[in-house]
Simulated assay, not measured.
Amino acid sequence: MPFDPSDPTFLADPYPTFARLRERAPVHAHPLIGLPVAVSHAACSELLRGRDLGRIWVDAEPAVAFPAFNLLHRNSLLEREGPSHARLRTLVAGAFNRGHTARLEPSIRKLADRLVGELAARIADDGSADLMSTVAAALPVEVIAELLAVPEPARSAMRGWSNAIVTMYEPDPGEHRRRAAEQAAAEFVEALRGLAAVRRRSPGDDLISDLVAADLDVDELVGTAALLLMAGHEATVNVIGNGVLALLRHPEQWQRLLADPDLDARCVEELIRYDPPLQLFERTAVVDTAVAGYPVPAGTKIAALLGAAARDPAAFERPDELDVGRQRNPHLGFGAGVHYCLGAPLARVEVAATLDALRRTLPTMRLAGEPVRRPDFVMRGLTELRLTA
């Protein structure tokens, strides 16, 4: 019973379909996606943690048409395995852990307050306003730009670059979006190479300077910056949008959060679990292996359906219920194993800061219209979420 990843009805609510798949088997062949998919929490966890499976980058073809897109991914931490991955992850983690999240947290909270204040002002003036364009899309890209200390005009272009590049991860992006992704990648590469050269001559208190000091070569540095932009921006945008929508559709949970700010940390984890921003993550068998008993020959790609894992009753009590105080929450939203997301602490701060600003500024917020969902499966999110108060 393969689902159609472009079907609007499925995209509106894929979770009943995932439940039917889990009931039948933990892993399924999926001809429409073109690879088998793991749907149980245990199978997805096994896939993400298994050392017989890796991220083996294969250039987008024809390679001559995608030089910048392929460069970004060939040099990405996410697309490496073994000693090459261990070396790069150690260097990047060392740079990232030099207090950048703590350094940025006060400015993140001020930014969230300002953006939510703008949202409230637009609601007061016009009766409603869009959370996605005003807050969700603006905050994380500004944080990543600040983390990397990206100046204008590149800073203003970063959101568009990220939006264009990630469309290549969909099952069938189409030729127009493929060309746009390469153009965005080329512009990103040029801007970040220039910035790295500046930081090499004149280092600052930013992650690019720390990556330069860690002796990454320029392509590894650009690939790392691209990963931070795409993972840090896209995922956080969609956690905020999907999460606020979930809270408004479960007003009793929003009231719990209003009454008890100490629930913020648990709420962030629950919003990531309940409607994950990344629905599918691929790996490739490096040797003949199996996932949950399903044979995966060497060289075969297999995907974890993270949205299906997030609603597995074998891993979560009452998985289809939103519970902002959920205590046991082993979600896979930040991955698992050697590729666990290095930016998870920063993402948590961004989402918590947004929730806190909404609670203080718009405690009576409610939906002002039907949300508009983006027509993508892998990156699950909204294009518009209009609120009133």
Rank of each mutant, 00 (worst) to 15 (best):
Phe3Cys: 03
Phe3Gln: 01
Pro5Trp: 00
Asp7Lys: 13
Pro8Asn: 11
Thr9Phe: 10
Leu11Gln: 04
Asp13Gly: 06
Tyr15Pro: 00
Ala19Asp: 14
Ala19Lys: 06
Arg22Gly: 05
Val27Leu: 09
His28Tyr: 10
His28Ala: 04
Leu32Gly: 11
Ile33Phe: 11
Ala38Asn: 02
Ala43Trp: 00
Ala43Glu: 00
Leu47Gly: 07
Arg51Val: 14
Gly54Tyr: 03
Gly54Lys: 07
Ala68His: 01
Ala68Thr: 02
Ser76Asn: 09
Arg80Thr: 13
Arg87Met: 09
Ala93Ile: 09
Gly94Arg: 10
Phe96Asp: 00
Arg98Ala: 01
Gly99Val: 09
Ala102Met: 09
Arg103Asn: 04
Leu104Val: 11
Glu105Pro: 02
Ile108Val: 15
Lys110Met: 12
Ala112His: 05
Gly117Val: 05
Glu118Trp: 06
Ala120Asn: 09
Arg122Phe: 02
Ala124His: 07
Asp125Tyr: 08
Ala129Thr: 02
Asp130Ser: 08
Ala138Thr: 15
Ala138Tyr: 06
Ala145Pro: 03
Glu146Asn: 10
Leu147Thr: 01
Pro151His: 08
Arg155Ala: 11
Arg155Cys: 07
Ser156Gln: 15
Ala157Thr: 05
Met158Ile: 09
Asn163Tyr: 00
Asn163Val: 10
Glu170His: 09
Ala184Lys: 05
Ala186Glu: 10
Ala197Ser: 15
Ala197Leu: 13
Arg199His: 08
Arg201Phe: 05
Arg201Asp: 14
Arg201Asn: 11
Pro203Thr: 05
Gly204Arg: 06
Ser209His: 03
Asp210Val: 00
Asp210Thr: 08
Asp219Tyr: 04
Ala226Phe: 09
Met230His: 06
Gly232Pro: 03
Val237Gln: 01
Asn238His: 15
Asn238Trp: 06
Val239Tyr: 06
Ile240Asn: 00
Asn242Asp: 11
Leu248Gln: 08
Leu248Pro: 02
His250Met: 14
Pro251Lys: 11
Asp260Tyr: 14
Glu269His: 04
Glu270Phe: 06
Ile272Trp: 03
Glu282Ile: 11
Thr289Arg: 07
Gly293Val: 11
Tyr294Arg: 05
Thr300Tyr: 02
Gly307Phe: 01
Ala308Ile: 01
Pro313Tyr: 15
Pro313Ile: 11
Arg318Lys: 13
Phe334Gly: 11
Cys341Ser: 12
Gly343Met: 04
Pro345Asp: 12
Leu355Ile: 08
Leu355Gly: 01
Ala357Glu: 07
Thr361Gln: 15
Met365Ser: 06
Val372Cys: 07
Val378Gly: 01
Val378Cys: 05
Met379Phe: 14
Glu384Trp: 02
Leu385Gly: 00
Leu387Arg: 01
